[in-house]
Amino acid sequence: MKADNFALQSYLSRIGYHGGAKADIATVTEMMRCQLFTVPFENLDVQAGKVISLVPEEIVEKILNRNRGGYCYEVNGLFAMALQSLGIPYQFVAARPMFYPVKRPKTHMAIVLRVNGEEWLCDLGFGSYGIRAPMRLSLVDVEVKQDADTFVLNKINDHEYLLKALVDGEWANQYAFDLSPQDWIDFVPANYLNSTHPDAIFVQKLLIVLHDSAGRKILFGDMLKTVKNGRVEKQTIAPEDIVSILSDKFGLTLNAENCSTPHKF
Rank of each mutant, 00 (worst) to 15 (best):
Q35T: 06
S260A: 07
L163Q: 04
G20R: 07
L137Y: 04
K106Q: 12
R132N: 11
A21V: 05
A110C: 13
V167R: 05
L207K: 10
E119P: 07
A176S: 14
K2A: 14
Y90F: 15
R68Y: 03
G20C: 08
I111A: 06
R216I: 12
L206G: 06
D141V: 01
L193G: 04
F151V: 05
Q204Y: 13
M31D: 01
L44C: 09
A176E: 11
C72N: 06
P181Y: 08
L246N: 00
P262E: 04
G251D: 01
Q91L: 14
Y73G: 03
E240V: 11
P134S: 12
V55Q: 15
N191T: 12
F265P: 00
N65W: 10
P40Q: 04
L179D: 07
G130E: 04
G20E: 12
I111P: 00
D141L: 02
D141K: 12
K22P: 00
P105F: 10
Q204A: 13
K264A: 14
A214P: 00
M135D: 05
S260F: 10
Q47P: 05
K62L: 04
D168E: 14
L54Y: 10
M109N: 07
A23Q: 09
V232H: 11
L162S: 10
Y161R: 06
D168C: 14
R231N: 07
E74H: 08
D241P: 03
C259T: 15
Y71T: 01
R216E: 05
L113T: 05
T253Y: 05
R114S: 14
M81E: 02
P239G: 04
C259P: 03
Q204S: 12
E30Q: 13
G215P: 00
K155F: 01
V144I: 15
L153P: 00
N65L: 03
A190V: 06
C122G: 07
Y11W: 05
Q35C: 07
L54G: 08
W120A: 03
V140Y: 11
T196F: 07
N258K: 05
I25G: 00
I25W: 02
V203R: 11
D168I: 13
L210N: 01
S10Q: 08
D212N: 14
Y100I: 05
T27S: 10
K50G: 01
D178G: 15
L163D: 04
L78K: 01
T27L: 10
L54R: 13
L124T: 10
C34K: 11
E58W: 06
Y90D: 04
V60R: 00
